[in-house]
Nucleic acid binder design. Structure first.
Lengths: 147, 147
DNA sequence: TACGAATCTGACGTTAACGTCAAATAGAAG
DNA sequence: CTTCTATTTGACGTTAACGTCAGATTCGTA
């Protein structure tokens, strides 16, 4: 198990405030529901930090809203729940199910990232064309002005 | 000259509302200041549509705030103003200055787009690694479960 | 066990980027 | 000139994503 941490440390490592973390939990993005008495301090692990950092990244790089993020996470958990009903046998099967549930989530994230990158590629190409036209036009004008 | 248009048509073509266009003008991003009597309808050209679409794109793809966009645009106009003081001679020199003023702006946009794309590339690579690990782990677990 | 720093739980405040509404007006069409 | 629709200005409303504050409480430490 990784070292236990409290909200302040997690916030600092993820580059957000404690308020943000509480708000994300309130929205259902973070935290282990039902494992904390009212008033107790929240306890996090290394995996939670990684998770939070991923969410922040999706938010910042793709501009996803918290609703979007909730959608992603819920899709993950819905799959996990469906799989969970089907058969609850050994501990190894349990792990398989966890792994299988997270694969479509990562695939979805990949789609989002790639789609955005494609759009940026197209934008970049247009800007380069435009820059080329401007530079060409500039030298043409300079030639004309010098004549 | 390209066909003249009013705010409704511009809004539809750019995929925004008229309110957004007025707000952008209020923030100094759009419109030709001092060329309209109070109460008159706003008149736009094809170039204005292109300009607006670019702003929308920077906003949506990069998540730039209106303050960010104002910063970009002001940088452009500041250069144009500086250049304008220096020498005001012929009409051709005028055009050179306009072209020269817009080059750094396009370059700045290119930087922003490329920087964002780099980050997305890195994110994409990480997600693919993660996906590979998950799939490998899945087949390992299945093998173990079958034994 | 007493202390002090960090955390907890409400609750209300803030900002950007528009949405919405009303009354007046502009401008194209007949 | 009338009519009708789109537009204008001004003002207030809305939402997401936290910020901020206060008083109570928890938890590592001396």
């Amino acid at each position: 198990m990784s070292r236990a941490m409290r909200i302040g440390e997690v916030a600092e490592r993820a580059g957000v405030t404690a308020r943000t973390i509480r708000y994300y939990e309130e929205r259902g993005l973070l935290g282990h529901p039902g494992t904390r008495e009212k008033g107790e301090h929240r306890v996090y692990t290394e995996a939670d930090v990684v998770r939070l950092q991923e969410l922040i990244r999706l938010r910042d790089l793709l501009g996803l809203s918290l609703d979007d993020l909730v959608g992603l996470v819920e899709a993950e958990e819905a799959r996990a729940a469906l799989r969970g009903q089907w058969e609850e046998s050994s501990t190894d099967e349990e792990r398989v199910r966890i792994v299988e549930a997270s694969i479509p989530l990562v695939e979805k994230q990949l789609e989002l990232v790639q789609s955005r990158r494609d759009k940026l590629d197209a934008f970049e190409a247009e800007l380069e064309q435009k820059l080329g036209r401007l530079k060409r036009r500039r030298s043409e004008l300079r030639r004309g002005a010098a004549a």
